[in-house]
Design a binder for these strands. Structure first.
Lengths: 231, 231
DNA sequence: ACCTGAACACCGTTCAAGT
DNA sequence: ACCTGAACACCGTTCAAGT
């Protein structure tokens, strides 16, 4: 554990930092942040770590495991927010917002979470949500559905967010310009077939992601309260 | 448009079906259904269509466009369900269930929808949901958030569904055995850190995807009704 | 106008060989 | 125990050349 002198002797003798699982994951996160999901490559990662592509396989099973490990680090950090002495309803908002911020700063996170149902990163989140759902007074028999609904909504938003970021990267558009274009396209849809979409096209251009996300969370919470006596 | 005699002369003279955009999309759907998202390959598709890999590019821009076109065909079919003379609340259930069934039969659909926010397949769905939200009596100012919440929840469920199917394919597990394993893993989580997750581990093993999905939809609808006078 | 198939520039992963 | 880097079996995409 601590005998780093014998470990990584090859690299150490060249005065380089030790190649460990954690170093690799940190580098992967940096790469994902700077180049997006498609930028995470064993060759690029090896270059960044000044090693060979194959060396990484000594510490990590495969690309999927690496991607999950990276997302777990970010998720653990995000849900580590201390929940102040507030109502369960407010705690859910705080929690959801923390995850939203994490997905906003690391757009690949949403994509990663969608790829590993029931695995550690998602379970961390489910646990935290579930506890607040219970604290809210939702009957035991309905807590599973309630917590899953919050989780799936969050994952849905995260996935869309990831895709938006990826499109913006490829097309090199600012968020503003991207929404303008999309909103314009919506406005030109057939009036008979798409009345609703046309009616909200303006909303799309000027909407606040964060505020709408939180409004969605609260909508679900209200649905939960409906089944509680605590309305 | 109709002069198929001159079109595709090469293939026609060999007695093969015409290579058109639609033929390609149909073949792509068949390939996706049988081999999953990772099975959709220009080489495999070309083999299936008895043509060269490059020929496909004459009819389709690139792989992403092909994937979207395939998902749009399925989505258009799914939301084509006729809504009987029922309440908006029931119509939303019918609609959501139709999409759920489509994502269940074509697990790659959930993944596709997550990759193209604001594009045709998602917009089709948003439109249908939005109209029912309006019919439900949700005030105009809140329809955008309400419809998006339903949509995002649906996309979240679809994404998880796609990932589950993909894992099941790789590991060649039956759904039952997969859930057993996951449920067992949840039961062995640390009692201090994961009380909620442990408490629902049994639920995970025996839960009914479809029923839970619909319960989530109804939870959100109840939240919407809360802001409506029509409670 | 439509199709062919070789070629290019990538991937993830493996593995003998080194230290 | 850990690292190296060539090699393998794939990808998506392009494009000269054909009909």
């Amino acid at each position: 554990m601590t005998e780093n002198v014998t470990k990584n002797s090859r690299r150490a003798s060249r005065g380089e930092a030790a190649l460990s699982r954690d170093t690799i994951i940190d580098a992967a996160i940096a790469l994902l942040d700077s180049s997006g999901e498609s930028g995470l490559t064993f060759r690029a990662l090896a270059a960044k770590l000044a090693t060979g592509a194959g060396a990484i396989y000594w510490h990590v099973a495969d690309k999927h495991a690496l991607f999950m490990a990276a997302s777990d680090v970010i998720m653990a950090r995000a849900i580590g927010v201390s929940l102040p002495d507030a109502t369960p309803r407010q705690n859910i908002q705080t929690l959801a917002l923390a995850v939203f911020e994490a997905m906003d700063q690391h757009p690949w996170l949403g994509s990663a979470l969608s790829q590993a149902p029931g695995q550690l990163p998602t379970v961390r989140l489910l646990e935290r949500l579930g506890r607040q759902v219970a604290a809210l007074g939702v009957p035991a028999g309905q807590q599973w559905v309630a917590a899953c609904t919050l989780l799936n909504y969050l994952l849905g938003v995260g996935g869309q967010n990831a895709a938006n970021a990826s499109i913006a990267r490829v097309q090199d558009l600012e968020r503003m310009h991207f929404l303008e274009t999309l909103s314009a396209a919506w406005s030109q849809l057939d009036a008979q077939e798409y009345p609703f979409t046309r009616s909200v096209a303006a909303k799309l251009r000027e909407h606040d992601d964060r505020a709408d996300f939180l409004a969605g969370i609260d909508l679900i919470v209200q649905g939960m309260l409906h089944n509680t006596g605590t309305r």
